[in-house]
Simulated scan of single mutants.
Amino acid sequence: MTFENILVAVEDNLAKVTINRPKKLNALNKSTIEELHEAFKSLEENKDVKVILLTGSGEKAFVAGADISEFAHFSVDEGGKLAAKGQELLFDFVENLSTPVIAMVNGFALGGGLELAMSCHFRIASDNAKMGLPETSLGVIPGYGGTQRLPQLIGKGKAMELIMTAGMISADEAKSYGLVNYVVPQDELQGLGEKLASKITKNSSVAIGKAIKAVNDGFKDGINGYQSEVQQFGACFGTEDFKEGTTAFLEKRKADFPNK
């Protein structure tokens, strides 16, 4: 896959997607969002890919925000459509992938950048990372899921504070709030991402996809997360991975999952 604003590399069962707009601190514009959608869609369809790592190019930024120049003069209707389309194409799309996506936050993750990281299944960060939702300082609010995912991850009170103050937090603060799982020096971030991915790829990708759906359903209005878990649990019994996993356990050997 060849793109203008992102880089995609696939090796064995691991894919790495890098947002590559270093002169703009990897800011998200319309074209980049569309390219990310196409990349994630293609990787989701590639059954050899079991984990996706997402990061930004350079050492300064994961994604420093949205490209404000693209929407500074939008009308009310245009602004609403911008948020709706972005959520559909990228943020909700990533959250609901059955392939695990790990955000490797390697610098500034602000506004749409933090919203993108939060749409991933979990996050790790370099020790120089800074995170925040500064939209209220521009007279607007987060529009790509930030008002929903940030409270889910760190609690309502702290999320309200960060959104209202438009402030930034350090990587260590983010870890203490549960926003990121690990903080390491920047030169160790890639290695940590690959190590976590390696652990994931040893397990059933079919089961992991069903676990993602069950967990996500617990945060959706009108869906009973416990009932979703029952359904996904039951569905596992009809997979080849379940047969291999249980057989391997009983035979005291490592499972070799067909991922079917």
Rank of each mutant, 00 (worst) to 15 (best):
L114M: 04
D217M: 11
M164Y: 04
N46H: 09
S170G: 12
A15H: 06
S176Q: 12
E95W: 13
S205E: 03
G191S: 14
F242E: 01
G145A: 02
K60E: 05
A235E: 14
G209P: 02
A83Y: 15
G112K: 02
G79F: 14
G209F: 01
Y177Q: 02
A15S: 11
A103L: 06
H121Y: 11
M160F: 15
N128H: 05
K85R: 15
D241P: 05
V230R: 11
L43R: 09
F237K: 11
Y182R: 14
M168P: 03
N96M: 08
G146D: 00
K252I: 07
F93Q: 08
N13Y: 14
K60L: 10
L89F: 13
K16W: 09
K60W: 07
I19W: 04
G146V: 00
T2H: 10
E44Y: 00
G209H: 02
L14W: 00
T2P: 07
I200D: 09
E78R: 12
E240L: 09
M1A: 14
L179Q: 01
S137Y: 07
L14N: 00
I6T: 04
A174H: 00
K220S: 07
Y182F: 15
G145L: 06
K60A: 08
A39W: 06
S98Y: 13
A235D: 07
N5T: 13
L189W: 02
M1K: 12
L192G: 02
S119V: 06
K158E: 10
A129L: 01
I68K: 10
A15G: 04
G58W: 01
T201P: 03
Q148V: 14
T165Q: 15
L196I: 07
A255M: 04
E59Q: 13
G167I: 03
A15I: 08
L14A: 01
E188L: 04
L162R: 04
L90E: 09
V215G: 01
F71H: 09
K85E: 15
P100Y: 00
S69D: 13
G238N: 12
A255T: 08
F62P: 01
K243T: 13
K130W: 04
Q227L: 13
G86S: 07
D12K: 11
K156I: 14
T247F: 08
G193Q: 06
G113A: 02
F242R: 00
D48C: 07
G113V: 00
F219P: 08
G56K: 02
T147C: 06
S205K: 08
I154E: 00
K85A: 15
S228V: 03
G107S: 05
G146C: 04
E38Q: 09
A211Y: 08
K60R: 12
E115N: 07
Q232Y: 13
D12C: 11
E240Y: 11
K85F: 14
S119N: 03
